Amino acid sequence: MRFHTRKWVKPEDLNPNKTLFGGKLLAWIDEEAALYSIIQLENKHVVTKYMSEINFMAKAVEGDIIEIGIEVVKFGRSSLVLKSEVRNKMTRETIITVDNITMVNLGEDGKPKAHGKTQVEYVKDRLSEL
């Protein structure tokens, strides 16, 4: 799994128990999945269709640095299925796993559109084609 993004847990990210608020973490995962999908599918019109059961395994507190990992599970006709893991860089513990995040590629009309992708592509490889 590739870890693309790091976040610093700040006071505004905490719940009343002084640990990272789960809703904030899920928003970060959703944003990371969207950005990853936009880059993979080369289309800024991508939406989250489904997020599977989540499993909180550890906590993060103010000052911790977390990193968000995303990996492709499969390419559908108009979708991209991802999984995510978030880990705490300070404690080296996995904070959360999400096994299935389904992102859908949309056309200009807002309806699902085939993307024609079948494998992960890296930006560096696209740039070398220019």
Rank of each mutant, 00 (worst) to 15 (best):
G76E: 02
A60R: 01
R87I: 08
E108Q: 02
V61T: 12
N55C: 14
K49Y: 14
K89I: 15
V81L: 06
G63Q: 08
T94P: 04
Y122A: 11
K89W: 15
I68W: 04
V86L: 09
M51P: 08
G116W: 08
N88I: 08
E108R: 02
E93N: 13
K113P: 04
H115W: 02
T91L: 08
V123Y: 13
E67N: 10
K111A: 08
K113F: 06
F56R: 02
E62F: 08
K49S: 15
L82S: 05
Y122H: 15
E93W: 06
V98L: 01
D109V: 00
I101C: 00
K49W: 13
M90F: 14
E62V: 07
E67Y: 05
K124Q: 12
I95K: 07
K49P: 07
E53P: 04
G76D: 04
S84W: 03
K59S: 14
K83S: 12
V73D: 09
K59Q: 15
S79H: 05
G116Q: 05
I65G: 04
V72I: 08
K124G: 09
E121N: 10
K124D: 14
D64G: 00
V61I: 14
V72S: 01
E71W: 08
I101M: 00
H115T: 03
N105Y: 02
D99H: 10
I54P: 05
T97W: 01
K59D: 15
I66R: 01
T91D: 10
K74N: 14
D109I: 00
V73Q: 04
T97C: 01
I66F: 07
K83D: 10
K74H: 12
V72K: 00
E85H: 11
M57H: 12
K113S: 01
T48V: 10
V81C: 10
V46D: 03
V73G: 01
A60N: 01
E93R: 10
N100K: 14
V98P: 05
K59Y: 14
R92V: 11
R87V: 13
V86W: 03
F75N: 04
K49M: 15
I96E: 09
T97I: 09
V86K: 03
R77G: 13
R92H: 14
N88F: 10
V123D: 11
M57F: 13
D109F: 03
H45P: 00
V73C: 04
A114S: 11
E62G: 04
I70D: 05
N55Q: 14
H45R: 12
L106P: 00
A60V: 03
E71G: 12
Y50C: 07
E67M: 05
L106V: 09
K117D: 09
G110Q: 05
R92D: 15
M57R: 14
E62P: 06
V81K: 11
Y122V: 11
Y122C: 08
N105M: 07
I68Q: 02
K113C: 07
P112A: 02
I54N: 07
S78V: 02
T102K: 03
V86A: 01
A114V: 08
Y50N: 11
N100G: 12
N105F: 00
E85W: 04
N88K: 07
S84T: 10
T118Q: 15
T118A: 12
D99E: 12
E67F: 04
E121D: 11
N55P: 10
L80G: 04
G69P: 10
F56G: 01
Y122I: 13
F75P: 02
K89T: 14
M51L: 13
K49V: 15
S78M: 00
S52D: 06
